[in-house]
């Protein structure tokens, strides 16, 4: 009971700390929101201009919604993923990482405590972005099932966190360029997950990668929910849910395990110290 209370307090410590940091760096949050919104609009306008580009008359509203879902999920994945990898990068930058690693808490609490905030932050951030971008387009949301959309994002978050924890090993071991190295994981997810196009257009050898990417299932589930009014309990949504559950159950413990190995390596080689 004592241990549980301790771990709970510690998990809240990371949430509170990250919230305090967000408040102090509010200007950065605004910049990041503008950047993501502009990016999302640029991509979505490709859908709006499809008639002009192809010279064929057709209803572009479904293409606009398709791309908008892609930009939204990509934004959510990026913000959440960055929230997880940033916990190491930022602590390295400030030199607090040794203090955090000295605290008498489990690494699971440390990592999950930080991820908890990343999810809340990512959801709020994505909602704001969606609200702004939607104002620029005529969206057909008559078939939207919002409950399914939120459900798919939350279920997908577990896997995103697992991948994020695994990637945060890079800034732990490579002080100067670790964060940039972690971008490669995101870039591969962007390429293979069908963010802006169906995965069927990918070369055959690339398609198995799409099947192990959690983003693929989140996107498919969201599109089924928002474009075709599929309920959470429908067989189609279930076909996207169970792979996400499996990926989440495997990726989070695996991520924590990999992080633990990296921590031990850093403690053997003296890599926790910032300047040397």
């Amino acid at each position: 009971m004592f241990t549980l209370m301790h771990e709970g307090r510690a998990a809240y410590a990371f949430f509170e700390r990250n919230w305090n940091l967000t408040k102090r760096y509010w200007a950065w949050e605004v910049v990041w929101l503008v950047y993501n919104t502009v990016n999302a609009m640029s991509v979505t306008y490709i859908g709006a201009s499809a008639q002009i580009i192809t010279g064929i008359k057709f209803d572009t509203s479904s293409l606009i919604l398709y791309l908008l879902i892609g930009t939204t999920v990509w934004s959510y994945l990026s913000v959440t993923f960055e929230g997880v990898t940033d916990m190491v990068t930022f602590e390295r930058w400030e030199g607090t990482i040794e203090h955090t690693f000295m605290a008498p808490i489990s690494r699971f609490t440390h990592l999950v405590g930080s991820c908890w905030y990343a999810i809340a932050h990512g959801l709020l951030f994505t909602f704001l972005q969606l609200l702004i971008v939607s104002a620029f387009f005529h969206l057909d949301l008559s078939q939207a099932n919002y409950l399914t959309a939120v459900f798919m994002l939350l279920i997908g978050s577990i896997s995103f966190i697992g991948f994020g924890i695994g990637a945060s090993v890079l800034p732990l071991l490579y002080t100067e360029r670790g964060t940039q190295m972690s971008y490669i994981v995101r870039a591969i997810l962007l390429l293979v997950s069908g963010v802006y196009y169906p995965i069927e257009v990918l070369p055959a050898w690339m398609q198995p990668l799409a099947r192990i990417s959690p983003a693929t299932y989140v996107l498919d589930g969201l599109r089924a929910g928002l474009q075709h009014n599929k309920a959470i309990w429908s067989p189609e949504i279930w076909s996207y849910t169970w792979p996400l559950l499996i990926t989440g159950v495997v990726s989070v413990p695996l991520g924590v395990y990999i992080f633990g190995m990296a921590e031990r390596y850093a403690k053997r080689t003296g890599k926790l110290k910032r300047n040397g």
């Binding site: 307090r9 510690a10 700390r17 305090n20 400030e94 607090t96 203090h99 605290a103 008498p104």
Partner: peptide, 20 residues
Amino acid sequence: SFFKKLSPMENLIYAARLYN
């Protein structure tokens, strides 16, 4: 070593919670 943008209180309350 601190989160320099945070106040002493915010930094120390973080440490206090980590130590239960």
